[in-house]
Amino acid sequence: YIDMRTISFRAERQMAGSLVLPLLLICLLFSSCATRKDVAYIQTPEQAMTIAAGSMQDAQIRAKDLLTITVESSNPEAVAAFNGIYWTPNQQYSTYAQQARTFLVDNKGNVELPVVGLTHLGGYTLREAETHLKGVLRKYVTDISSVNVKIQNYKYSVIGEVRRPGTYTSENTKVSIFEALANAGDMSIQGVRSEVKLMREGADGKREIVTLDLKDPNILASPYYYLQQGDVIYVQPNDAAAQSANIGAATGIIFSIASLTLSVANILISLLVK
């Protein structure tokens, strides 16, 4: 004798167990869906638009920067000492030695230069520093053709929902926020384009956190569009990514509860069919 109710209960039990995992996967799939408006940058209905020109945001020299300072002249012997090279009749002028010479900016914005001594460069842009140094050095040597100043440790960090988070060094001190994101492999689809956080420490030591909307075309005119050395960009995860993280952390618990529920159901069904 075959009890049809027993067969029916067992079939329903097996079906319920087989549907648990697919249902969980479907929930995860739909929770991570995003539209084009969620992932597109610089959204504007116009085919073309012009952003008003703003003041150029050049990087400024500040404490802990490493600078290379190269002084050029038609008479290399005259400026050799300023480049840290001690000229002798048998020594050939070395451009490589000039480029390798670095100077640390102290906490007060000063740099210890050969011959000249302590010189304040903190707060200057690179072009302003070059002009200032020309004036200082011409007190010693009139034949100076150029002074070149570069920041060697121009670094910024990109963290959060990007493909390659990390700290990046650039020889170019004119890095936009989009270039920084491109170097980090761009945002993942879970990154929130409208609420990107930028953390910056000023030359006076004050720290600020600003929120940038990369979907707004006016970002191109923002004073934060170009990075300063030491900036940190944080791309926040969207709600779906946050929920996925919570689900991922709780997956074991969920499946344990589901397994326990099925076990209890099995016991109850076994008791009922007897």
Rank of each mutant, 00 (worst) to 15 (best):
Y140M: 05
I189S: 06
D204G: 06
Y154A: 13
A180S: 10
R193G: 02
S170R: 05
G205F: 07
R163F: 13
S145E: 13
G135C: 01
Y154W: 14
Y154S: 05
S146M: 06
E208F: 00
I159L: 15
Y168W: 13
S157Y: 02
G166Y: 10
S145M: 11
I159R: 11
T173A: 11
R163N: 14
V149R: 01
E171V: 04
A182K: 11
L137E: 06
S194H: 08
T173S: 12
K150S: 14
E208Y: 02
Y156N: 04
R138Y: 02
S170L: 05
L137G: 03
A182Q: 12
I177M: 09
R193D: 02
F178C: 08
T173G: 00
T167V: 12
R193W: 03
T142C: 01
I159E: 09
V141F: 07
A184C: 11
T167C: 06
N148L: 13
V147Q: 00
E195D: 10
A180M: 07
E161S: 12
P165D: 10
Q152W: 03
N148S: 14
Y168D: 09
G166Q: 10
A180N: 05
D204E: 06
V149T: 04
D204I: 05
G166D: 10
G135W: 08
N148G: 07
K197E: 14
T169C: 02
M187A: 09
E171H: 07
A203N: 07
T173V: 13
V192I: 15
V175T: 02
E179D: 15
E179P: 02
K139D: 08
E208L: 03
G185N: 06
S188T: 15
R138S: 13
I159S: 07
R164I: 05
Y140I: 00
G160C: 07
S145N: 15
G191P: 01
R200I: 08
K174C: 03
I159P: 00
S145R: 14
Y140E: 07
S194K: 15
N183H: 09
N172P: 02
A203R: 10
V192Y: 01
N172V: 12
V175Q: 00
V158I: 11
V162M: 04
G191D: 03
E171T: 12
L198P: 04
L198W: 01
V162I: 08
S176I: 00
V158Y: 03
K139A: 09
S194M: 09
G160S: 09
E195C: 01
T169W: 07
A203F: 09
V136A: 07
V158H: 05
V175C: 02
N153Y: 03
S194F: 04
L137A: 05
